[in-house]
Design a protein around this nucleic acid. Structure first.
Lengths: 193, 193
DNA sequence: TGTACGTTAGTAATCGTTAACTTACTCTGG
DNA sequence: CCAGAGTAAGTTAACGATTACTAACGTACA
């Protein structure tokens, strides 16, 4: 159960990390990001570890609905995948901080105790993707010579690398410009001949 | 030009980072990893920034030959890709610290001044992969409806995610067990011969 | 009156870095 | 051949800044 203030702190922490990297995710920086003292943070989180945990929960709650859209779609496999990637990229482009969502396991491997949660987060997302492909294969809308989990790994891995490259560019470009190629490539590869 | 001691320090730094995360990459930890004082480190690197730069150079020198094997092969393109992935996974499995190679841009985005080098490292690897696919397409041994750079992104993104998951597992499993599925999936998708 | 939420002002530990000094080796002139 | 100068590479001991965290206290509001 999260209070308003806790959510504010978590969002501030995500902003700090996305802007300046995990090294700058300090209690001091989070506190000053919402204009309070360091000690005030400890009124809401008992330790930095608990703040990190809350960040992961928050990121998961943002990412999960995105993956849920995969199943909600009524159209063809290609349309569903297109909508998923478009929605995801729009979200990431609108708020760069959300980029952290995709790379949580890379970023937060600081606190060894968070490992199980990080693993669960990634595994959950992959499972959703795999389920999407399982359905697509069952309905003969997707090639069946690869396992759903393999299709999911390829999809997620590819998306991550595109986002990673976009995030690394100097001049800010449109992530959406990348969306079309990714969708086109994957749906071309995975569709039935 | 690197001295022996510099290389020792860089290798120690890579070990520290791979084991405990970038937060633990401190001069103190690197120094004690080779059994000297902190001040001794500064006899070989003027600053932590220079150590970080040297790490990137080192990682690149390890990874570049791996990518070079793509072009050296005499057999089919499928065999070349198989050999590349097998060699890469063997290397990563043999020395877990090398896993950092694949995720350098994620790990070392601490020092903003390193960004150009990180970008160059990733771009260089992708360019090698793209060249491989360019050749394969030219000889009609790979599907031609995707651009080489897209094939390269998919390949590298997929490899990274497999390695990432393997690296995150609790009980140590064999990375090599994933090599065959990855190779099979990509060859099938790309009609690589 | 008590609880929620803030403050100031500290703590010990750790960060990157430097100063001053020691040790061991090599090069060079008489 | 060998004294002495120079240098490479280590040491201890500190520096100011920053880390996560805490104790004691103030204040608004039910």
């Amino acid at each position: 159960m999260q209070t308003k203030r806790q959510i504010e702190l978590v969002e501030a922490a995500i902003r700090v990390t996305a802007n300046d990297g995990i090294q700058k995710l300090t209690i001091r920086n989070v506190a000053s990001a919402i204009g309070v003292s360091e000690a005030a943070v400890y009124r809401h989180f008992a330790s930095k570890h608990e703040l990190l945990q809350a960040i992961l929960v928050h990121l998961d709650s943002l990412l999960a609905p995105q993956f849920a859209t995969l199943h909600a779609s009524q159209g063809s496999y290609k349309e569903a995948l297109t909508k998923f990637i478009n929605d995801l990229f729009t979200l990431l482009e609108h708020n760069t901080a959300f980029t952290l969502m995709l790379f949580a396991e890379e970023t937060f491997n600081v606190d060894i105790q968070l490992k199980p949660q990080l693993d669960a987060l990634l595994s959950g997302n992959l499972k959703q993707l795999a389920k999407f492909y399982t359905d697509a294969i069952a309905e003969k809308r997707c090639r069946a010579d690869l396992k759903p989990i393999e299709l999911a790994m390829i999809t997620f891995g590819t998306i991550r690398l595109y986002v990673s490259r976009w995030h690394m560019q100097d001049q800010p470009t449109n992530l959406m410009d990348y969306a079309a190629p990714v969708t086109a490539s994957l749906s071309t590869l995975f569709s039935l001949q």
